Simulated assay, not measured.
Amino acid sequence: MATTQSQAVADRLTALTGHRVRLAGVTTLGDVSRAHLTQLGGTGVFVNELRSRLIGGEIDFAVHSLKDLPTRQDEQVVIAAIPPRDDPRDALVGTAKFSDLAPGARVGTGSPRRVAQLRMLRPDLEYVAIRGNADTRIGKVTSGELDAVVLAAAGLGRIGREAEISQVFEIDEMLPAPGQGALAVECRADRHDLIELLGVLDDPETRAAVTAERSVLAALEAGCAAPVGAFASGDGHILSLTAAVVAVDGLRSVRTSTSGPTPAAMDLGRELAAAMIAEGAGTLMGEQAH
């Protein structure tokens, strides 16, 4: 998937600027380990090796799934572009739609955020922690080991496996991870030539939306392994933002919405996070940490 999305960005850059791009594959700990995401350290596990190569000058720019990026920006690198977002929603690949799965059916996902929200919808199912790429996860359904798996709809689309989706969860059913469906193109902060070149890929509306979502995450001091969902959308002038923190047992949650001017996206996220903390969101995340 990483290769596919990187190639798509490279092709778009070539089409817009005429610059040829050569891909350089980098394997990260997050790619090869089968440990649970929380055991690996959560945020940054998929990006640290790429950033190391970037800072060292071995590569000119890196393409990340934005939801994998730490919210605290490394001063040595900059997000030069956030291309138009793909489908931000979560998708089920399984033997039936979610509501039609038999009680006790086994559903696989490596995301505490997904498990928490799925338990709110169907506490009668068994949720199994899994790791591996999309092909490996889907294979567990094909083999009968699991009845279903939950993956990002955008990722399935990028690898051409959207036909295997049995259901897409609507935003009001399951809030996606902050930044889900979006890509981030990073380069060194001192490469002003690259910042200008890569800027042609940037989509201002997507950048505003994910800035608000990630601002919630940063203000909550949560990583990508925390049970935090957030989604923002707008018309270029007004941004609407919804976020939730859900207890891992699915029994309690704090869900809040707000809206405001698009240029104030970061402040919007911070203010929403403060309101969530006032309603007890920090307690729910503390339980996840333990």
Rank of each mutant, 00 (worst) to 15 (best):
T3E: 14
A8L: 09
A8N: 14
A10P: 02
A15R: 13
V21D: 04
V26R: 08
T28L: 03
H36F: 10
G41V: 10
T43N: 02
V45W: 11
E49Y: 02
R51Y: 07
I55G: 05
I55K: 13
E58S: 15
E58F: 10
A62Q: 13
D68M: 02
L69I: 14
P70W: 11
R72N: 08
V78Q: 06
A80H: 09
D87Q: 05
V93H: 02
S99H: 12
D100H: 13
A102M: 09
A102F: 13
A105K: 01
V107N: 08
G108S: 11
G108R: 06
T109N: 06
R113H: 08
V115M: 11
V115H: 06
Q117L: 02
R122F: 09
D124C: 10
T136Q: 14
T136P: 04
I138A: 08
I138E: 09
I138N: 03
V149A: 12
L151N: 07
A152M: 11
A154P: 09
A154S: 11
G157K: 12
I159C: 05
G160Q: 10
I165N: 00
S166F: 06
F169E: 09
E173K: 01
P178H: 00
G179E: 03
V185Y: 14
D190K: 14
L198D: 03
G199F: 07
L201I: 10
D203K: 04
R207K: 15
T211L: 10
R214M: 15
G236T: 09
V254E: 02
V254Q: 04
P261S: 08
A264P: 00
M266T: 15
D267T: 15
A273V: 00
A275G: 08
E279W: 08
G280F: 13
A281P: 05
G286D: 13
A289D: 15
